[in-house]
């Protein structure tokens, strides 16, 4: 079978385009959502889709290069998808005023604490392991 017909090259261009690959990733998301609904899995559909893709990549049923550009397209501007969700605050009038300030106070301080503790713990454990396991420690520092 020839691999150099115009049809094959056109198909290859489409397969390697970021937009097509993003649509493929979207297909896996729909599969995840469907699985959650049909099987009654108590997990978000996106997470099931993620596990599915991870499994297919690990068993080499899906090649990295056939989804990678699409995934990068979706991830590079993921913050955009959060913008409409942020405006949901407009719909909660009860959060405007003193109550909102109190909540903001809790969120700011607690988030800073979580990030500090997580980063500190991970860095400490990482250094400890690097110092105690010379044989397989590979420096990660940039």
């Amino acid at each position: 079978m020839s691999h150099h017909t115009p049809f094959n090259s056109a198909a290859r261009i489409v397969r390697h385009s970021a937009l097509w690959q993003a649509a493929v990733v979207g297909g896996f998301w729909l599969a995840g959502e469907a699985a959650v609904r049909v099987l009654g899995i108590p997990l978000p559909g996106g997470i099931v889709g993620l596990a599915l893709v991870l499994g297919l990549l690990a068993t080499r049923r899906v090649r990295l290069r056939s989804v990678r550009r699409g995934a990068n397209l979706l991830l590079a501007d993921m913050l955009l998808f959060f913008v409409p969700a942020v405006l949901a605050v407009l719909d909660h009038h009860e959060l405007i005023g003193l109550l909102g300030l109190k909540i903001l106070f809790v969120i700011l301080l607690s988030t800073a604490a979580v990030m500090f503790v997580t980063a500190f713990t991970v860095d400490l454990c990482y250094r400890w392991r690097a110092d105690h396991a010379h044989n397989h420690a590979e420096p990660l520092a940039r």
Binding site: W29, G45, G46, I47, V53, L57, N72, L74, L75, P84
Partner: peptide, 21 residues
Amino acid sequence: TRWLILLLGPATVAFAIPIYE
């Protein structure tokens, strides 16, 4: 803009690729 929020689903799935890498 609901369709933009919906894209958070595929974006979640897309994390499979960097995790695998």
